[in-house]
Simulated scan of single mutants.
Amino acid sequence: MKYGEINMKLAEALLERKNLQTQLASIGQRLQANVLVQEGDEPSENPQTLLQDALRLNTQLHRLIKAIHLTNAQAMSTHNRPLMDALNERDALLQQHRILQQTIDAASEKQNRYSNHEIRWVKTVSVGDLQQQADAVGMRIRTNNLEIQASNWHIDVIGLD
């Protein structure tokens, strides 16, 4: 579905956002490759046309992002709670998982000792306990993502008129 159509689902809008971001990045690379050419050469694509396309896509993208944000702020998830609560929970869980995983990685790093005179490093945390916590948070992330994704296919985007 495109913007003028009624009842675009939030999941469709998110896919379209990703598509527009990819197109914009591609045009940006093509634009950079064509704004300077050696004297006597012609650009392979018209930079003015590329620039106009980039500006048009940028306007479309940000109109869509605004509608997504407006929808997220007003929608209820399939678990009958504000979708923004689910999104905020996901962000917090992802950060929590990242912190746990970084701690596990740091504690699991092998310390090479070449002689008995070098400093011996000892762990100050239980990697097993941290891994259990990370696994539990990972499960919560998956459950939360299922709620969000299911909701996205039921919620109509608002603000695209």
Rank of each mutant, 00 (worst) to 15 (best):
L20G: 04
L20P: 01
T22G: 11
Q23I: 03
A25G: 14
Q29I: 14
L31Y: 09
Q32S: 13
A33Y: 07
V35I: 15
L36E: 10
V37L: 10
Q38S: 09
E39V: 04
G40A: 02
G40W: 06
D41E: 12
S44R: 11
E45W: 09
E45Y: 12
P47L: 08
P47F: 10
L50W: 04
L51D: 14
Q52H: 12
L55R: 15
Q60R: 14
L61R: 09
L64C: 14
K66T: 04
K66I: 00
I68Y: 05
T71S: 04
A73R: 05
M84I: 07
M84E: 05
D85K: 08
L87G: 00
E89V: 07
D91P: 00
L94H: 05
Q96S: 15
H97M: 06
R98V: 02
I99A: 10
L100H: 02
Q101L: 06
I104P: 06
D105T: 05
D105V: 01
Q111E: 12
N112F: 14
R113N: 10
H117W: 02
I119Q: 11
T124C: 00
T124W: 02
V127P: 08
D129K: 12
Q132Y: 00
M139E: 15
M139L: 14
R140M: 06
I141N: 06
